[in-house]
Design a protein around this nucleic acid. Structure first.
Length: 434
RNA sequence: GCCCUGUUAGCUCAGUUGGCAGAGCAGCUGACUCUUAAUCAGCGGGUCGUAGGUUCGAGUCCUACACAGGGCACCA
C-alpha cells in the first residue's frame, strides 16, 4: 500500500528508522529497514526531517509492541520542509503564532485541524438542513451603495470606474426581502458580514451570518426552525444532543426556554420596563452616559442588556421574545400592543446567537420608522446611514408577510465545537500586521 | 479608547538582591534493527519586542512605543 503524509516524528536506530506520518485524518507509523531498501533509498530515509512530506510504499503490519505500522519498501520525498518545526511535545501553543501561521498550527495541533474541519462539516449540515426544508440558497451583494439592515459601523471602499463609494455589507437583510417581493418564497444566505467594530472573543470584523426569509412565515416559524436546526447540528455530533462549552454542559435536545423581554427586565430589576423613571435610575446606576437625553426605550434596552441578559441561565438555550418596537425598526409591531414587536433573540452561554422577527411589510410604517431612526442618528452615523428609497419602493410593490431570521454562524460553531474564542473557529482571524 | 498580564535560541520555557545568557526539544556529527516525547556521546545556535533613561554595571529598575492574550467600553 501507499501512504502519504507529513513527518511529525522521526526516530533512528542505525539500520532501522521509525517515523510517524500525519495527514488530515490522523497519524500513522511507518518503519524503514536497511534490509528492505537499497542503499541510496536508505541514506535518503535517514536524512528526512520533521515537516517533510513523503510517500511510503510497503505492507501494513504490526510492531512487536502492537503498533500498526507500514513496513516500507519504497520512500519518496514529495516536499522538503525548509522551516524549523515547532517543538514536538508542546507543539505550537503561542496564540499569536497559531493565528498568524495557521498553516503550522493546523498540522502541529490536531485539535485545530479537527475544529476547522468540524466547522466545514457543520456549515454543510446547515445547508442540507435548509435545503431539505425547501429553502433556496442565494447570494446577494456584499458591496452595497447603502449599508442597511443593521445599525453597525460599516467598512467603506470606492469603485473607480463608477466613481462611487461602496460599503461592505453589514447585513444582507434588505436584499433578501427584495427577493420575497420578487416571488422567491423561501430563501437563505450563508456568507460574510463586515462590521467596523471592536475585536474580542465573540467578535471578528468579518463574520459569517445565516439569514433566512420565509413568505407567510412569522417569528414563531423562525423560532421552530432555529430550535430544530440547533438540535440537528448538536445531535449530528453527539446523539445525546449535549455539548460542553467551557464550564457549561448545554442540552440542545431539551426544549429551549422562552421568556418575554419585559418579564426578564422586571424579574431582574424589580420594576416593570414601562416604569421609565425606574429604568433611568437603573441606567444611571450602571454608568450609562447622557441618560436624560436618551429615548425611553433605548434606556430600557441598556437596562435589559445589563440586567436582563445577565439573568438568563447561560446553560439553557433561551429565546427572549416580544422586544420593544422602538428598538426593532424592521419588525411588525404587536396588533394589541404596538410598543412591543414580534421579535425574539436567542441567547446561549451569554452570547447573542440569533435574532428573528415577523417582518414589517407596510411601506408607510417602514418609511416612518426609517426616518425616525435617521433623526436619532448622530453626525458620525449620518455619514454612512441613508434612507434606502428603493427598499421602500419594493415594499410598495408588495412583500408577502414573512418571518426572517439571522444566526451568527461562527458562534454556532463555537458552541458546537466547544471553542470559547471566535478566533479558534475562523481559519484566518484578523490580526494586525507584524 | 481604558486597565491588567506577557514578549529571552526555530519551538516550549527558566533566569535569584541589578554582577559572564541558560535548559529541554529541534538542528549538525557519531553510535544503535521494534521505537512510541527512543536512548547515549559530542558540536553549533541570542538585536533578551523597539527606543530612551537610571546605574560602575540592566534580561532584571523607570518611561514611551509596538504586538499579543484577558478584562472593560463600543457593538440597537
Amino acid at each position: 500500500m501507499l501512504v502519504a503524509g507529513r513527518i511529525v516524528q522521526h526516530r533512528e536506530f542505525g539500520k532501522l528508522v521509525f517515523m510517524v506520518l500525519r495527514d488530515h485524518t490522523g497519524d500513522l507509523q511507518v518503519s524503514i529497514s536497511k534490509s528492505e531498501l537499497d542503499a541510496a533509498q536508505f541514506r535518503l530515509a535517514r536524512k528526512l526531517d520533521y515537516g517533510d512530506i513523503i510517500v511510503v510504499g510497503g505492507r501494513m503490519g504490526m510492531t512487536k509492541k502492537g503498533e500498526i505500522c507500514v513496513w516500507a519498501d519504497r520512500v519518496e520525498v514529495h516536499c522538503k520542509s525548509l522551516a524549523p518545526p515547532p517543538e514536538k511535545y508542546h507543539g505550537l501553543t503561542d496564540a499569536e503564532a497559531r493565528y498568524r501561521r495557521r498553516y503550522v498550527d493546523m498540522y502541529a495541533n490536531p485539535e485545530t485541524m479537527a475544529t476547522l474541519q468540524a466547522r466545514s462539516r457543520l456549515v454543510a449540515q446547515m445547508r442540507r438542513f435548509m435545503d431539505a426544508r425547501g429553502y433556496l440558497e442565494v447570494e446577494t451583494p456584499m458591496m452595497q451603495p447603502l449599508a442597511g439592515g443593521a445599525a453597525a459601523r460599516p467598512f467603506v471602499t470606492h469603485h473607480n470606474a463608477l466613481d462611487m463609494p461602496l460599503f461592505l455589507r453589514i447585513a444582507p437583510e434588505l436584499y433578501l426581502k427584495r427577493l420575497l417581493v420578487g416571488g422567491m418564497p423561501r430563501v437563505y444566505e450563508i456568507n460574510r458580514n463586515f462590521r467596523n467594530e471592536g475585536i474580542d472573543r465573540q467578535h471578528n470584523p468579518e463574520f459569517t451570518m445565516m439569514e433566512v426569509y420565509e413568505a407567510f412565515g412569522d417569528c414563531e416559524s423562525m423560532l421552530e426552525l432555529t430550535e430544530s436546526l440547533m438540535r440537528d447540528l448538536a445531535t449530528s455530533l453527539d446523539a445525546s444532543g449535549r455539548r460542553t462549552f467551557g464550564e457549561l454542559e448545554i442540552d440542545y435536545a431539551a426544549p429551549f426556554d422562552r421568556v418575554a423581554y419585559g418579564a426578564l427586565v422586571e424579574r431582574s430589576t424589580g420594576s416593570p420596563m414601562t416604569d421609565f423613571g425606574a429604568m433611568r435610575a437603573k441606567a444611571r446606576q450602571i454608568g450609562v452616559e447622557n441618560v436624560d437625553a436618551m429615548d425611553d426605550w433605548l434606556v430600557v434596552n441598556e437596562v435589559f442588556e445589563h440586567f436582563g441578559e445577565a439573568a438568563i441561565d447561560p446553560a439553557r438555550p433561551t429565546f427572549v421574545t416580544d422586544f420593544p418596537s422602538a428598538i426593532s425598526p424592521l419588525t411588525r409591531p404587536h396588533r394589541d400592543d404596538p410598543t412591543l414587536s414580534h421579535r425574539w433573540e436567542l441567547f446561549v452561554a451569554g452570547m447573542e446567537l440569533g435574532n428573528a422577527y415577523t417582518e414589517l411589510n407596510d411601506p408607510d410604517v417602514q418609511l416612518s420608522k426609517f426616518t425616525e431612526q435617521l433623526r436619532g442618528a448622530d453626525d458620525e452615523a449620518r455619514a454612512f446611514r441613508a434612507l434606502d428609497v428603493d427598499f421602500i419602493q419594493a415594499l410598495r410593490v408588495g412583500m408577502p408577510p414573512a418571518g426572517g431570521l439571522g444566526i451568527g454562524v461562527d458562534r454556532v460553531i463555537m458552541l458546537m465545537t466547544g471553542q470559547t474564542s471566535i478566533r479558534d473557529v475562523i481559519l484566518f482571524p484578523l490580526m494586525r500586521p507584524e
